[in-house]
């Protein structure tokens, strides 16, 4: 681990309750090298508690950098703890007199910087329809695959991705954390994605309040326009609210700033680049 490549991450995050909902049940964590967005569900069933549990548990992960395999296992274990806590919370609420149908749940999408065999990678994990995008070479591409009814319809070739935007059940997800009393119970199993850092200079994690309101092309334009990740996150949320703000909207933007071996980084290189910036060199 001595030759670990130093990676500097800059990030920005923003969230908004939107124009329709009364409470913001989204939650996010931006604690390099761990980034998470969770979209709580349930309205009166306290989806905010479920998404807060996600953030709390992922916060325990941020201390160290894992290799890819250990990271996926750690994330799986964390999601297991989250699942148990949410189910316990639901049981507690029902015991305290909440309706028998009380059920809270949440999505989660997480990005962790991990060490792979061939350099640092992004490990992305998702449960539900909160998304991870990557922005590379000026192009936005969705990384995660939603666990939603419309995604399954798209996979099955029944509907086109364009039709999915207006599909009546576009908000029905097929996997979630918690959600004990949902019909049939749902799986909380995550899907994982592993990307080399070079192929993902900028990562966007967002809830469906963003991806459901703003077209991917527009998100791409915003990410291209805003160099600072904090601006980028705020602009993305502003666009989601401007588009109607039907749902809570949350975005976390992470930039990979430095991609260099720590032992090759020296002050000479830094000075050189400064002189270039000042125009001292031709």
């Amino acid at each position: 681990m001595t030759d670990r490549i130093h990676v500097e991450l800059h990030h920005g995050a923003a969230t908004d309750v939107g124009l329709v909902r009364h409470a913001n049940e989204d939650a996010y964590l931006a604690a390099p090298p761990v980034f998470v967005v969770a979209d709580g569900m349930g309205g009166h069933d306290r989806g905010d508690v479920a998404s807060a549990i996600v953030v709390e548990e992922f916060a325990h992960l941020d201390a160290e950098r894992y290799d890819a395999e250990a990271a996926a296992q750690a994330v799986t274990a964390t999601l297991g703890v989250i699942q148990e806590r949410i189910l316990a919370f639901g049981a507690e609420q029902r015991a305290d007199g909440a309706a028998a149908g009380f059920s809270t749940g949440t999505t989660a999408v997480a990005a962790l910087l991990v060490d792979g065999d061939s350099g640092p990678h992004w490990l992305i994990a998702n449960v539900g329809d909160s998304r991870a995008y990557r922005f590379s070479d000026g192009e936005l591409a969705q990384v995660s695959v939603d666990h939603s009814v419309v995604q399954e319809l798209i996979d099955a070739g029944t509907i086109t991705p364009a039709a999915a935007q207006d599909h009546p059940s576009r908000n029905v997800i097929t996997r979630a954390l918690g959600g004990s009393a949902m019909p049939g119970g749902v799986s909380g199993d995550p899907d994982y994605f592993l990307l080399p850092l070079a192929a993902a200079e900028r990562i966007l994690l967002c809830s469906d309040g963003v991806s459901g309101m703003v077209e991917d092309a527009e998100i791409g334009r915003i990410l291209a326009r805003c160099e600072d990740p904090r601006d980028a996150a705020e602009q993305v949320i502003a666009a989601a609210v401007a588009a109607g703000g039907h749902d809570n909207a949350t975005a976390v933007v992470v930039d990979v700033v430095g991609l260099a071996h720590t032992d090759t980084y020296d002050s000479a290189a830094q000075r050189l680049s400064l002189e270039q910036k000042l125009g001292a060199l031709p």
Binding site: E152, T158, A176, P183, V186
Partner: peptide, 24 residues
């Protein structure tokens, strides 16, 4: 089966993943 009910009421937040929607 499990997927059809939620399709009818979009407010239902989740359906079991086992219930694949009918193939086209």
């Amino acid at each position: 089966g499990p997927a059809e009910d939620p399709l009818a009421e979009p407010d239902t937040p989740a359906v079991p993943s086992s219930g694949l929607p009918p193939m086209g």
